[in-house]
């Protein structure tokens, strides 16, 4: 096979430049494989982050040909053939070295999320939740914290000054995950409005476009959150939305289980066996 030309940004906080590496092409490789071969060959000190190499840990985010991508999930054969592959660090975060950026901002913001406060459990000490009621939360919990949504967010991409007062899409889905949690009892609307800068997002959906987990960040998290923080007395639609959402916090079955004389159905009382096996063929 032919060679591939990798144009990789090398440098640190004081500046840097793109350096070209011409490497033999290997069938089936992803960008991260070629970076690893550059490390094992011409540039042993080329800095990049990686862990799982399977799209599960979100460590190897970079801007490939100008677009934020996971290096481990970007196959070389989907990039334009015969053209150099340009690999740059995420622009929104301060450079440490080469492809590695200082993502501490995200961890600082994460520390400001109040701890989860669940309601009291059932009499047996555990909880009942219906699958349908947790699916929204599960969507957000797919987040692998690659921080590419933060990288493309206009509010902070070229506005360092906004970082002090803006949590960003990654944190908004974290908030929405808590808000949609069936066991949640907390109210975070003040925090979202006052400290997390929710109002600064102008819903351009860039975050949604780059999410490697295909989480609908804008539609399913940011817009519903914006509706919630609008003062109930001024916005009847948002008020209604909250009421409707409140109902989903507890399913009918859960309510029934709490009712006087409640009991937990035993296995024998359940209509079909097994109730739900791991291979639910429905």
């Amino acid at each position: 096979m032919a060679d591939v030309t990798m144009r990789v940004w090398r440098g640190d906080e004081d500046g840097g430049t793109f350096t070209e590496y011409v490497m033999p092409a290997v069938e089936g490789e992803v960008v991260l494989d070629v970076i690893h071969r550059i490390q094992a060959g011409p540039a042993p000190d080329l800095a990049c982050r990686w862990n799982c190499k399977a799209g599960k840990c979100g460590s190897c985010s970079a801007e490939i040909n100008g677009l934020p991508k996971l290096m481990c999930m970007t196959r070389m054969d989907v990039l334009p053939e015969g053209e150099p592959v340009v690999v740059a660090p995420m622009r929104t975060f301060p450079i440490i070295r080469d492809l590695v950026t200082d993502v501490a901002f995200n961890y600082t913001m994460a520390r400001q999320v109040p701890p989860f406060k669940p309601r009291e459990p059932e009499a047996d000490g555990t909880y009942r939740m219906q699958q349908i009621d947790i699916e929204r939360g599960q969507e957000f919990r797919k987040c692998i914290e690659c921080f590419m949504c933060q990288d493309v967010c206009h509010v902070i991409r070229d506005h360092e000054e906004n970082k002090a007062s803006y949590a960003g899409p990654r944190m908004f889905i974290r908030f929405m995950e808590l808000e949609s949690h069936p066991l949640d009892t907390d109210d975070r609307r003040e925090l979202l409005r006052e400290r997390m800068g929710l109002g600064m997002c102008n819903i351009t959906k860039c975050c949604t476009e780059v999410c490697p987990e295909h989480i609908k960040i804008t539609d399913n998290a940011i817009i519903p959150l914006k509706e919630r923080v609008v003062d109930a007395s001024y916005d009847p639609v948002a008020w209604l939305g909250r009421k409707i959402l409140r109902r989903t916090k507890r399913s009918a079955l859960e309510a029934a289980l709490d009712a006087p004389g409640q009991h937990t159905p035993t296995r024998q009382e359940q209509p079909t066996r097994p109730v739900v096996s791991a291979t639910d063929h429905s």
Partner: peptide, 22 residues
């Protein structure tokens, strides 16, 4: 169960408990 109190969202059985797989 402790993880669930801390916010984990495990898949559910039809009666709302934590589902278990073979």
């Amino acid at each position: 169960y402790e993880l669930e109190r801390w916010g984990a969202l495990f898949d559910r059985t039809k009666d709302g408990r934590i589902l278990q797989r073979d």
